[in-house]
Design a binder for these strands. Structure first.
Lengths: 209, 209
DNA sequence: CGTACTTTTGAATCGCATCAAATCTGGTGG
DNA sequence: CCACCAGATTTGATGCGATTCAAAAGTACG
């Protein structure tokens, strides 16, 4: 057992930024849902009746090709699944829990109404989207760099302040975010430190020069 | 000279989706600006007084490290530069035109007002952001694939409909979007075609199987 | 016709992924 | 308290695949 903390409707996900900026009228409509690994949250062609927020676990947006190969469009952890579906009638892809996951389900129409009526919610939602956008743009630029050392340096300068970052995740997860294997991340970090390019102190990284 | 088309204030950028969904009151405040290659649009620490829309050319959001190396956070072509700055007092990075570029400049406060007052503009802006987000998430997933053939297949399934895409850009630009050199894109396309994985007809690509 | 650009192919190299395995770590239960 | 286990961390050896440099052929445009 990972956590003994109950995941009831009220209070669940209260630590998520999205929940704090939601009007109570909408928050009260949240229904806790649990999905076992590999179970579908929604499927291509389904009408968009609900908006889902991932609290624990991971949900993947996927499309399948005829030969069974799947293409991952998005992985959500601690965030909404397919925000863009808010403006669609039908889902254009399938959402699958890749591990046992706890979600919150909101009625789509109530969500749209809240967005329309509450100026605070709207502003917060807008801000949240903008920041997410900024972050993703930086990550795309980073992933398009070919050398591991360049991605690491880019990460430190883009995500950190004044050439310094404190990692908020284990290195293995960081490697995945950088589009690298954990082995090459470890090796490159060591090499960069040996060459005096960076200074490493636990989870604190500092770019030198 | 690339284009002889005049870039006056009125009418310029009228073909951009962003301009169509903007209330006239805001559109009228647009000022046409031209920046020569390598000239700064704004710099770190400047107050956020204006919002810029790239009409032609390219603007890069960058941060500099002490040794002069620059980290590109975003490249904008035909879109807004640093939307997230709307919610900041000061810029946290520098914007530079990487080639001769025509921009439209909007007063930041008028922009915020329009967003607040016009429900249509707000809705359209929200939709635009959501779709951009969806696109970027898919691109991040794609760029985190290690093999060139996987990125190409991912692109066809994510950006296309029913395993089919029509490329809207030269292959060299497509290669950059895929995070590949143009050489390896050409080679991989040929190999995939030889192996019967895809069918290529000019700019029309079809995934087989 | 000439210029600038894209498209295409070739050969050599380098960096990362991969497979394998040892060590370290935090947390569990005996 | 210690043995134990699952996971993260670290190092090693090898091969593949993409980059790189080079150059030719094709294409759009003035």
């Amino acid at each position: 057992m990972k956590k003994a903390i109950g995941v009831g409707v009220s209070g669940s996900g209260a630590d998520l930024p999205w929940m704090r900026l939601m009007p109570p009228s909408l928050r009260e409509l949240a229904k806790a849902r649990h999905f076992a690994a590999h179970h579908a949250v929604f499927q291509t062609g389904n009408p968009v009746c609900s908006i889902y927020l991932v609290v624990t676990g991971e949900v993947r947006l996927v499309r399948f090709s005829r030969n069974g190969g799947e293409v991952i469009l998005q992985r959500s952890r601690q965030g909404f699944v397919a925000e863009a579906s808010l403006d669609s009638q039908l889902y254009h892809c399938t959402a699958v829990a890749s591990e046992p996951s706890d979600l919150l389900e909101f009625p789509a129409d109530a969500f749209r109404t809240a967005l329309h009526d509450s100026s605070d919610f709207r502003a917060a939602w807008l801000l949240q989207l903008s920041q997410e956008l900024r972050k993703l743009r930086a990550q795309c630029e980073r992933l398009s760099l070919h050398r591991a050392a360049d991605r690491i340096a880019h990460y430190i300068h883009a995500e950190g302040v004044d050439g310094c970052v404190t990692l908020q995740q284990p290195r293995k997860a960081w490697a995945a975010e950088l589009g690298l294997t954990h082995e090459s991340l470890y090796r490159t970090l060591r090499r960069m430190q040996d060459e005096g390019l960076i200074h490493i102190n636990g989870n604190l990284l500092r770019a030198l020069g």
